[in-house]
């Protein structure tokens, strides 16, 4: 059984998502290794083919789109390794998902400053 509760704006990474996203997350996991990051940058298409990404996952990688990557089964901790290739951090990821600039996203967090 998948998680039964729906939480707005939240995608619980459970077994059904983990199954759907396995190849994509495996590709992202490989980016722990610098040689793999460089191989990806040299020939992105060949690298995605090597990991057996489905068309939805391949398109999401091509679009650098976090919401599409999540829809395709990506786990955010693994996607962060993909984002890291381009020097992007979790605030860049947050900004892209919420449709804000990074400055606006950071400012929204700073509004809650203690």
């Amino acid at each position: 059984m998948a998680a039964s509760k729906t939480i707005d704006g939240t995608m619980i990474f459970d077994g059904s998502v983990a199954r759907r996203g396995y190849a994509l997350n495996k590709l992202c996991y490989s980016f722990n290794d610098r040689a793999n990051r460089e191989e990806f940058l040299r020939d992105e298409g060949a690298y995605c083919a090597k990991y057996g990404l489905n068309p939805q996952q391949r398109a999401a990688i091509e679009h650098r789109n976090v919401m599409e990557l999540l829809e395709a089964g990506g786990n955010v901790y693994y996607l962060a390794k993909f984002a890291g290739i381009f020097g992007l951090d979790v605030q860049d990821i947050g900004a892209q998902q919420t449709g804000m600039t990074k400055e606006a996203f950071s400012a929204k967090l700073m509004e809650q400053r203690t």
Partner: peptide, 9 residues
């Protein structure tokens, strides 16, 4: 970190 609720505190 993920989804439309990213940034939730």
């Amino acid at each position: 970190l993920e989804g439309k609720r990213a940034g939730f505190i």
